[in-house]
């Protein structure tokens, strides 16, 4: 590896410090005994026990994770279908429309997405009696709208690089379209599906605006809870909770990254051996 020049190294250090100092200080102060957040008295795990006793916080966190998992899964399924439609050779009437329309949520402010969905649900309830109301379904729909462009883009870009000749070869050998998809296309785009899923999951977990429009009885998500906490002032409990949450996320993502890297290595090796064989 090339040695980095000193200015570049300095830049790197400043950049990383800037990004991570807030997180590090948050984790450190979460171990303080003080009742006032950000003030260090002495070491204690008091606030961690407080987190585990705070049912509201844990329930809200589980609610957020549940919504994020459901909406990321739905997003990825729709994203794959849309990507296949957009990259296919078939010419259909609304292809161009679909291609552009699916990206529109990126440029629409979240608050408008939330508000328009709220209005839509009221209208459907009043006109045709379809009751979506407020609650998990409404939030999931909102989050799918919010996250689908990101998942769709990652999957589409991988799919458009896909070599059509392989598909044709498989079809020539008698594979049905469905088998071609499951046995050939899906393994190739699996990585981008996972990336799309993680993106959608993170965006959904993070969302406050859409959720506060669409939440209903019993569906307070974590961002809503933390925001409403600010009115009565923050407690070090939130520090401890944030530290725990980061820990859990790290524990979940590190294996994912390792496995992704392995897949990457393997497919790299596979390509190399292909080259050798030829």
């Amino acid at each position: 590896m090339n040695k980095m020049s000193k200015p570049v190294l300095l830049f790197l250090i400043v950049g990383i410090t800037f990004l991570y100092i807030p997180l590090v200080s948050l984790v450190i102060t979460s171990f303080s005994e003080s009742d006032v957040p950000g003030v260090w008295t002495h070491f204690s795990l008091k606030w961690y026990t407080a987190v585990f006793q705070d049912r509201d916080l844990i329930e809200a966190a589980f609610m957020s994770v549940k919504i994020a998992i459901i909406s990321a899964t739905v997003t990825v399924v729709l994203g794959v279908l849309a990507a296949m439609a957009v990259t296919s050779d078939d010419k259909f009437f609304s292809k161009k429309l679909l291609k552009n329309a699916i990206l529109i949520p990126v440029i629409i402010p979240e608050i408008i997405i939330g508000f328009s969905l709220l209005m839509l649900f009221i209208t459907t309830e009043n006109s045709i009696g379809l009751k979506i109301g407020h609650g998990i379904i409404a939030i999931v729909i909102g989050h799918v709208v919010l996250t689908i462009p990101y998942a769709h883009l990652t999957i589409k870009s991988r799919l458009s690089l896909f070599d059509r000749a392989i598909e044709d070869a498989a079809a020539n050998l008698g594979a049905k379209a469905f088998t071609v998809f499951v046995r050939i296309k899906l393994p190739v785009i699996l990585q981008s599906i996972m990336v799309g899923w993680i993106l959608a999951f993170a965006l959904s977990l993070d969302d406050l605006v859409v959720a506060s429009f669409l939440s209903g009885p019993g569906t307070t998500t974590l961002p809503i809870l933390i925001f409403s906490n600010l009115r009565i002032g923050i407690t070090p409990e939130l520090n401890a909770f944030a530290a725990l949450f980061m820990g859990v996320v790290a524990l979940c993502t590190i294996p994912a990254f390792i496995s992704l890297r392995n897949i990457g290595k393997r497919s790299g090796a596979l390509q190399n051996s292909d080259v050798d064989a030829s």
């Binding site: 709220l118 649900f121 009221i122 309830e125 009043n126 109301g133 407020h134 506060s212 429009f213 939440s215 209903g216 009885p217 019993g218 569906t219 307070t220 809503i224 809870l225 925001f227 409403s228 600010l230 009115r231």
Partner: peptide, 17 residues
């Protein structure tokens, strides 16, 4: 359930459902 300001509550109350 909690809200972070009165306007959020009002939006929900006026949204009829």
């Amino acid at each position: 359930d909690v809200y972070d300001n009165n306007c959020t509550l009002e939006a929900k109350l006026l949204a009829t459902n």
